[in-house]
Design a protein around this nucleic acid. Structure first.
Length: 481
DNA sequence: TTTTGAGTTGTTCGA
DNA sequence: GTCGAACAACTCAAA
């Protein structure tokens, strides 16, 4: 569509969704390529009735990411506008008012995002408004990959064998100075009026742990390249050190693209064949795999991928669930993880597996409960990865792991937090407890504990379940299905 | 269609 | 303390 007056400014609306960045953004690239000035907007379209509406920590991150994006845009002479409501009607109205040529946006792959998108496409089409969508968040879109029988993959390794080649992509090349923003005045509302920040101010503390901006994402990426990637295959398992990328929250709202990450890693080692690099890139692959699964099996957010798990005899035990949520199970490795999560909005990946296995197998509480809690408390909450991770832990997902794999929370601590830095950091009463009893303090002789600050049942709980008993009970429950 | 090989991240037991 | 086997047979991908 061309404007009636060729000398008039050509305008396009860029609808930011889960791609809150200026670099490597296909909507922006396309706008530049076509000589458009951009009207940048964000629409908050969730309400409390919507299933899997972003959780509290995620909204905190979103709020700050939007503030940062708005500031970056204003430095370039633009103005990011915010709207609250139904994207279809907002976009149609905005195109009319601004006489923009149309709308560019990134595609979604989660059930709700796709529903919104379908309705937007219909509504714009029926109003003869030009719209174009792009892949702005994945290396490869879920429908581009299939196995030889034409079906979606359900096992990671063959999936990655087919998709790994997509790591060799160049980020889109353009200069920020070449972006031109339209001076169309904002008809939106203030960021604060989107109501993203939780009413309780527990989120205030998150600021001390996270810098939320596109710049910060690149700083962290640079740190990962210098100090994480090469030693990733072993250091990533130790939760007491800074051995992981911590890029997940930046990826979740698209402050960084997976393509940017892969490209940066491969600049040092073009084949990506160094062990640490390969492992690191494989984690990006797991994110892709999670989206692949969510797209092809959208019910897995709530239902097990393996149907026979529908009859699993989960326990309904709110009191014990609460102990787990707030880090009071009495198992230091589990509690350290849950406390780190509640305090910082993030948990080390190794510990996520331990706490998930504990909830699902030791406590026999449904993975749905764990997924909901993570969804609400993680700053990196991502529906695809969260769903995939929890189903994996519960054994009902796309993973052929044998069912008898039950993490031993004591051994996991001894193995991966060998020095005890991690549990001591998050559970101060354990400070003086000797290493031998650090992960199972209830086994320590009374005399040993007398020399420490630890007082079981007072400043740290007794274990809420016996490991041996719980393991046997889990195997028994698993044998019933 | 049938068959075969292989599968992110583990634990326990006994030699 | 270390090491290999058993756990118990499942599901998917590909030949």
């Amino acid at each position: 569509m061309t404007p009636n007056n060729p000398t008039a400014e050509k305008k396009i609306i860029v609808w930011f969704r889960k791609d809150l960045r200026l670099l490597d953004n296909p909507s922006i690239f396309e706008a530049i390529s076509n000589g458009y000035s951009i009207i940048p907007i964000f629409i908050w379209d969730s309400d409390s009735n919507q299933k899997w509406a972003p959780g509290e920590a995620s909204r905190w991150w979103l709020h700050n990411a939007l503030a940062s994006l708005a500031s970056d845009i204003s430095k370039l002479g633009g103005n990011l506008s915010f709207y609250h409501g139904d994207p279809s009607s907002i976009l149609s109205k905005l195109v009319r008012e601004s006489s923009a040529d149309g709308v560019y946006f990134g595609r979604a792959f989660d059930p709700y995002g796709m529903e919104v998108e379908a309705s937007v496409i219909n509504s714009l089409r029926s109003n003869s408004i030009h719209q174009q969508s792009f892949n702005s968040t994945l290396l490869v879109e879920p429908w581009e990959v299939q196995n030889k029988t034409g079906k979606p993959f359900q096992v990671f390794t063959p999936f990655w064998r087919h998709t790994r080649k997509y790591i060799f992509q160049e980020p889109l090349s353009y200069h920020l100075d070449n972006i031109s923003f339209s001076d169309f005045p904002s008809s939106g509302i203030a960021l604060d009026d989107l109501g993203l920040l939780p009413r309780l101010d527990w989120h205030q503390k998150l600021h001390q742990y996270w810098e939320v901006s596109e710049d910060a994402a690149h700083k962290r990426l640079a740190y990962s390249l210098s100090s994480v990637v090469d030693s990733y295959s072993h250091r990533r398992n130790n939760p007491g050190i800074d051995g992981t990328s911590r890029l997940s929250p930046y990826l979740a709202w698209g402050l960084l693209s997976p393509r940017q990450i892969c490209h940066a890693v491969l600049e040092n080692e073009p084949e990506g064949s160094n062990r640490g690099q390969n492992k690191f890139l494989t984690e990006v692959g797991w994110r892709e795999f999670s989206y692949h699964l969510l797209y092809h099996y959208p019910t897995i957010t709530d239902q097990p991928l393996r149907p026979k798990y529908q009859s699993f005899p989960w326990l309904n035990d709110p009191d014990t669930l609460d102990k787990w949520k707030f880090g009071n199970t009495g198992y230091p490795m589990v509690d350290a993880g849950m406390r780190q999560l509640y305090e910082t909005g993030w948990m080390h990946n190794r510990v996520r597996m331990v706490v998930a296995s504990f909830l699902v197998k030791h406590l026999l509480i449904s993975w749905n409960e764990g997924a909901k809690w993570f969804w609400d408390t993680l700053v990196d909450a991502d529906l695809a990865s969260n769903t995939q991770g929890w189903q994996w832990a519960a054994g009902c997902g796309a993973d052929a792991a044998p069912y008898f794999r039950i993490f031993n929370p004591i051994l996991q601590g001894e193995k991966f937090d060998a020095k005890g830095n991690y549990v001591r950091k998050w559970i101060p009463p354990l400070d003086d407890v000797p290493k031998k009893w650090l992960f199972s303090p209830w086994d320590a002789p009374k005399a040993t504990l007398e020399d420490t600050n630890l007082s079981l049942g007072e400043n740290y709980p007794e274990p809420c379940v016996d490991h041996k008993f719980a393991r046997a009970r889990a195997l028994e429950a698993l044998s019933t299905i």
